[in-house]
Design a protein around this nucleic acid. Sequence first.
RNA 1: GGUCUCGUGGCCGAGCGGUUAGGCACCGGUCUGCAAAACCGUCUACUCCGGUUCGAAUCCGGACGAGACCUCCA
Length: 487
Amino acid sequence: MENRRNLQIYNSLSGKKETFEPLHIDHVGMYVCGPTLYSEPHMGNMRTFINFDMIYRYFLHLGYKVKYVRNITDAGHITNSAGLEVDSIGKAARREQMQSLEIVYKYNVKFQELQRLYNLLPPSIEPTATGHIQEQIEIIEQIIENGYAYVVNGSVYFDVQQYIKDFNYGILSGRKVDELDNETRALNAQDEKRFFADFALWKKANPDDMQIWRSPWGNGNPGWHIECTAMSTKYLGKHFDIHGGGMDLKFPHHEDEIAQSCGSMGCNPAKYWMHANMLNVNGQKMSKSFGNYFLPKEIIEGSTELFDKPYSPDVLRFFMMQAHYRSNLDFTQDALNASEKGYSRLMEAFKLIDKLNINDSSSFDVNELVNSFYQAMNDDFNTPILIANLFEAAKNIYLINDGKATITASDRDFLIQEMNGFISNVLGLQTSSENNDSKLAPVMDLVLDLRQQARSNKDWTTSDKIRDGLAAAGIVVKDGKEGTTWS
RNA sequence: GGUCUCGUGGCCGAGCGGUUAGGCACCGGUCUGCAAAACCGUCUACUCCGGUUCGAAUCCGGACGAGACCUCCA
């Protein structure tokens, strides 16, 4: 496929757009950092997963065989800036009076439900951190053997000072080790570390830890970053195509993953690093303390105070796709309403396309239009441009419907196929109408027939009563030249 | 404090040196029994100050403003 050769991806590693060339022909290996299951994923989490779902879908659309690995973090992250224990899952377990595994299971069920609601394709593999403790231990052993880690009191730390003699720590985030900590941070509990920037690979267990594993260094917990190195390596190999995640994971998480891979296997794990941007709500990063925090399910149900009406998952997906994955996106009521209307107009056009009259020639260049879909996506997955081009198609469909433009049968079939491919397969929007209720359709036919009779008799009172009554029930009646439709 | 993004019309949001992005809203028109839907058309931009250039929203410098990260974060 010609379209494959032109795919440009912004690589966070180089800070530039690069032509995508897979390591293995026809195959793409992609690893994305998944959720930590200590609470229900929020809308910001969903934006990242939806963006990578779109990226996954576009690779599939281009005909690649994709192995998409997205992990589940079910072991609590164990250190914070002060080196103190912060087991997020353990904390949640105590709060909710459950065992760690119960917490993880509970929120995983919710996460799976959200994926279905928002039409995310399941990844090829969703490995868990706790299922790969042995692999993590083996990588840590290798790093120690290579001289880039040291053992202290049953804990293992990555030796950044040793590492920077051979590799570039900061290659992804652009940070320089000597700039990292000019101000002396609170150094309590960091006595074990040789250097402030060293990070934990394995942490000795505390008596009150809820999850503990055995290791060559005694009982303990894996560090936060090592799980991703272990799982990406196991399922995709030591060097694979794409590693993705939220922008906030760039440092330290991804930087440390690179250090672990280089320190154990001698190479950066991924050829392309991709980072999806954050979600703002009413101008600020979504946060519980700002009062602009809401869950993906609340906005669908309309149960959040922030918005005065519910929005469907398709509208929310469409809204997010109208912004580029590397841009900030601000959730506001006005913006969501605008997307809701635009989405409906696009989908109405797509539903209309089957019914268009055929002509001997097309009054516009369908090939060029379809090509513009690919060009948009090939430019670093530019979904806003793709959507603008889909609206161009919609405009033409409406013109044909009004008899002001023409299309040939083969062009129409081609356009149907490609529009469906991009709307449904790539953007992940559900094109099947929820109005295809087998019982409602014949009833509507009857009602509209009665209304048409009233209209023929110029009985506007009856005709408008039917229209208003249906409107009250949420059904919009549309009188067109070719008859009346509803939705 | 350090590192890095960003500042586009009423709202959201593309743009990577010369061409109408797009959506929503507004206004005028076509259509309609009246509406709605649909179509056509018009109008609102590039934070500010310098510089480079024949030409800058786009490149460079500075100011102001917003945001992210700096060992919990998607």
